[in-house]
Simulated scan of single mutants.
Amino acid sequence: MNVRNGVKIQRRMEDQLFFVYCVMHLIKSHLHQGYLLQLFLNQVNQRNEIIMETDDLYLKCHNLIEDREYEEGLSILFEIKNNINAKFLLAYLYEIGVDGFLDKDTYKSILIYEELIELNQVNALYNLGMLYLRESDFNKSVFYLKMSSEVGNSSASYWLYRIYEENFINEAERQKYLMVSKNQGHLQAKKSYLIEKRIKSKSYIQKLKLSIQILYLKIKVIPIIIKDPKDERLV
């Protein structure tokens, strides 16, 4: 078993378990869109990845949408759509849609992200790269994620590593972006690097046994959280 296949098997099992949990969670909550929106709003509130000016109207709009008061919140959002924070939120809402209040419109979302990039909002590079990834447009996704990686976004580097492993099979680029994302501090990249390092240090039989043990441990302790490409965006 080579290193790449060993890691891919482990990740595939992890992703499958995560998918099952996601489905169970969404069935239980009946609030798929509301849940995704809550993730976005939590990132704005807690992660502090973007430091931008806000005003009272945006904060009011933000709080209304967080409380699922969509009609009033969207009304204010369109009034202040020139606010940088408002642009990010509006682009995201167009990307996921708000049932009964705002139709999903990927094209409008792309246009807003492109406008934000022209305004030197580098976080929009990552958002747009991930949007194209979810649309399976890998060439455009790689284009924007590489620019995002170059300005220090560890999540962009990590997803480039995944793309070069699973879509554009390129071992040199895969290794390059694994190291880049690890050095930028991405936790999952650090874990993947350690797994590969351990697998490389063992004989074939030991590698196989170790891979099974790692899979078993991951299944046993997999955290009960929702985590997908959208969650890691800098918004």
Rank of each mutant, 00 (worst) to 15 (best):
Q175M: 12
L131V: 15
A189M: 08
N153A: 00
K146M: 07
G100F: 00
Y132P: 05
Y161H: 12
I80V: 07
K108V: 13
A189T: 00
N170L: 04
K182Q: 09
Y158F: 15
I117P: 09
L145T: 01
F88T: 00
V180M: 04
F143D: 14
N139G: 08
G152V: 07
E135F: 06
F101I: 09
Y126L: 10
L77N: 00
D99V: 14
L93N: 03
F101W: 11
L119N: 15
L102E: 08
A86R: 02
K182R: 11
M147F: 12
S155C: 06
K140M: 14
L111R: 15
V122R: 12
T106P: 08
S155N: 14
Q175G: 12
A189G: 08
H186E: 06
Y164P: 02
Y193V: 00
G185F: 08
Y113G: 05
Y177N: 00
A124G: 10
I80L: 09
M147P: 08
I112T: 02
H186L: 03
I110H: 11
L125D: 09
V122D: 15
N170Q: 07
S75R: 13
S148R: 01
L116C: 00
Y144K: 07
L93K: 04
S157I: 00
Q175S: 14
Y161Q: 08
V122M: 11
L145Q: 04
Q121S: 08
I76N: 07
F143A: 10
I169V: 15
F88I: 03
I76K: 07
I76D: 11
A172G: 05
D103W: 06
Y177G: 05
Y144I: 06
I80Y: 11
I80D: 10
I80W: 05
N153D: 10
E114S: 04
L160H: 04
N85A: 13
S155G: 05
S148H: 06
L116K: 04
L133S: 15
L116Y: 01
W159Y: 15
L119S: 14
Y113F: 05
Y144F: 14
E135P: 03
E115A: 09
E115P: 08
N127R: 02
E166M: 11
V151L: 05
G185Y: 07
E173F: 02
I110D: 13
L90C: 09
L125V: 09
G129M: 03
F138D: 12
L128G: 03
S148K: 07
S155I: 01
Q184W: 05
Y92T: 05
Y94I: 03
F168V: 14
N170F: 00
H186K: 00
V142K: 00
I163V: 12
D105F: 01
F88V: 02
M179R: 04
